[in-house]
Simulated assay, not measured.
Amino acid sequence: MLRTLLQAKLHRVRVTQADLDYEGSCGIDEDLLDASGLREHQYIDLYNVSNGERFSTYIIKAPRGSGEISLNGAAARRALVGDLLIICAYSIYSEDELEHHQPIVVLVDEHNRPRRNVAADAG
Rank of each mutant, 00 (worst) to 15 (best):
L2Y: 02
R3H: 15
L6W: 10
Q7F: 10
Q7S: 15
A8S: 15
A8K: 13
R12H: 03
V13F: 00
R14A: 03
T16W: 04
Q17S: 08
A18Q: 09
E23G: 12
G24N: 06
S25H: 09
C26G: 05
C26K: 09
I28L: 11
I28T: 04
I28W: 04
I28A: 04
I28G: 05
D29R: 07
E30H: 07
L32W: 10
D34G: 05
D34T: 12
R39M: 13
L46G: 08
Y47I: 01
V49D: 13
E53C: 09
R54E: 03
F55T: 15
S56K: 13
T57M: 02
Y58K: 07
I59Y: 00
I60V: 11
P63N: 13
R64A: 05
G65Q: 02
G67E: 13
L71E: 11
A74P: 10
A74M: 03
A76P: 07
L80H: 13
I86S: 06
I86F: 08
I87T: 05
I87G: 02
A89S: 15
I92T: 11
I92D: 13
Y93F: 15
S94A: 08
E99C: 01
E99K: 13
H100D: 12
H100T: 14
I104P: 00
I104Q: 11
D109R: 03
D109M: 01
D109C: 07
E110N: 15
R113Q: 14
R113C: 04
P114S: 15
P114T: 14
P114Q: 15
N117L: 13
V118L: 10
A122P: 00
